[in-house]
Amino acid sequence: MREHDLPRTGRGKSRNHFDDDELTYEKNFAEEPEWDETPDKPEFGDRWSTWDLSTPLERGPEPHPDWLVTELAAVDVERGVLKTGKEADVFLLHRHIPHTERGCLLAAKRYRSHDHRMFHRDAGYLEGRRVKESRVNRAMASRSSFGKEAIAGTWAGAEFNALVRLWEIAGQLDVPAFTPYPVQILGTEVLQEFIGSPDGTAAPRLAQVRADGKELADLWRQLVLGLTVLARAGYAHGDLSPYNILVHEGRLVIIDLPQIVDMVANPQGKRFLARDVHNVATWFTARGLPDVDETALTAELLAEAGLR
């Protein structure tokens, strides 16, 4: 995929700052000065790549995938909305280098500001989550405007950090990745691997898949493996269902992890895990998969997490 190709002109002209050595005061001008208000954006596209705005700890684990565009000459182009929700919207983003064929599709998840609805029953998910500054914890508990902004940042950070951790653990265990690759986080925007076809068609949700026989059994095997890695990391998804699992060319991918639950720190961790298992086991059983024992699976996952 290619965008309109024009030479890059730079990221804007330099401007004076208040800490410059020499200041020119407006009262000394004989006539009205002309200020440079040229927007800092590329000739084509919606913005420059934000890759260099994230710190190394705010980027995905190395080695970065070959498909990921990390060059600073890249631009980001919005391709539309993939999903809307009460807490966040997901956009399709094309990051590419002008004049070349190099580009990739990303899913940009942007959490809503404090004046929009926050997570449904978010108090249960927030148990066990704390930030370093006590004043921020108090603001989050009181749901002040500042506290709601902090909660939005907490959701974004929790999802990105979980994706990084799970990607790393899958690599250490030499098992296929079952979550999207976490590209970067910038504020309350989480960029991650787009799961779908090169033309921008998103992969279907598990709830939309018509599978039976060996295909259904293979999807269950992948899901159990993913849940096992989650449990070994000490996590429960917290809101798992056939609606936040994607299936792309036979690959099962678990998405929507902002409410991820630390099963040790959260006193309701076991309940969240049991609910996750029940939701997916019920779906697979209804589709005709035999020998699905949710009680046994829940016990196995608790053992993986070091809980009983």
Rank of each mutant, 00 (worst) to 15 (best):
M1T: 09
M1Q: 07
M1A: 10
R2K: 14
E3S: 13
E3G: 15
G12L: 01
G12Y: 02
S14V: 11
N16R: 14
D21S: 12
L23P: 00
Y25F: 14
K27F: 13
A30Y: 13
E32L: 14
E34W: 15
K41L: 13
P42N: 09
P42M: 13
R47F: 15
R47Y: 07
S49C: 13
T50D: 14
W51D: 08
D52L: 04
D52S: 15
D52G: 08
L53G: 09
S54P: 05
T55K: 11
E62F: 04
E62V: 10
H64I: 06
D66H: 01
W67E: 14
L72S: 13
V75H: 01
G80W: 14
H96W: 09
P98A: 11
L106D: 01
A107D: 14
A108L: 04
S113R: 04
M118V: 08
G128Q: 02
R130G: 08
V136W: 14
R138F: 15
A139V: 01
G147P: 05
G157T: 09
A162Q: 11
Q172H: 12
F178P: 06
Y181L: 02
P182W: 05
P182H: 01
I185L: 00
I185M: 12
E189P: 01
Q192G: 04
P198W: 14
P198S: 04
D199R: 00
G200Y: 13
G200D: 04
A202Q: 06
P204C: 04
Q208E: 15
Q208P: 06
V209T: 06
A211F: 10
D212Q: 15
G213S: 11
L216N: 12
L216S: 03
A217F: 10
L219S: 01
W220K: 10
R221A: 11
R221I: 08
Q222K: 08
V224E: 13
G226E: 04
A231S: 11
R232P: 02
G234D: 10
G234T: 01
A236I: 09
H237G: 02
L246R: 03
L246T: 03
I254F: 07
I255G: 03
L257H: 10
Q259T: 11
I260Q: 01
I260R: 06
L273P: 02
L273M: 12
A274P: 03
R275A: 10
D276R: 07
W283I: 06
F284I: 07
T285E: 10
G288I: 11
E294C: 09
E294P: 10
A296P: 00
T298R: 06
E300S: 12
E304S: 01
A305V: 02
L307G: 04
L307D: 03
